[in-house]
Amino acid sequence: MSSSNASNERPAWVAHHFDTAGQQVSSAKLGMWLFLATEALMFSGLFLAYFLIRKLHPDMVLVASEELNKAYGGVNTVVLIFSSFTMALGVRAAQVGNQKSLERNLMITIACAFIFMGVKYIEYSAKIHHGLLPWNFFDMEKAAHHSAALASFEYTPMFFGIYFTMTGLHGLHVVIGIGVLTWILIRARRREFTPDNYVAVENVGLYWHIVDLVWIFLFPLLYLVK
């Protein structure tokens, strides 16, 4: 069911170098999908580093991953999936022009993002407290005191090196997501989006879903290693 704007005159928001609104929207979306492909390729480098560490030191990874708190990981996963859900509802609200529901969903998504970062903060401080950090900052006494099994492996800090890199880069993308979502919320408040011109909301939605997607793969690999 297509929107009814069948007239020929050119809406204001179509940029001068585009001939039709459809051309501008599809260009924006193709550009976003290409950007998402680059994001996926960048994170794939880190996932390969993880698989390499797992191949080089399989038993160390199993023991070291026990240190990660599965409950916090689980909460974070549900929070992110819920925020993905509300984001999708937000995009749908923009499509049908339901202004109130768009703003509400955006706010919930941003709230979930903050919760996610909060849980991340708790996890990181627990690790720092136990000295479970990459090589340069790894504290063998604290780690050994924390759990004897860890100290028996020679390359334990390697796991925490890749753990902090992956979750750190993902966390950075969540923070960028918060910034971009707030910007879209401001524009939504200014009623800039109409059922014909909502591609900005959709692109931010796509970005947020990719951030959630990366966590969906990251969570089982880091937390639920068996």
Partner: peptide, 12 residues
Amino acid sequence: VENPHESHHHIS
């Protein structure tokens, strides 16, 4: 293009 500025989206 008949009506160039009419755009059709899928709303699930």
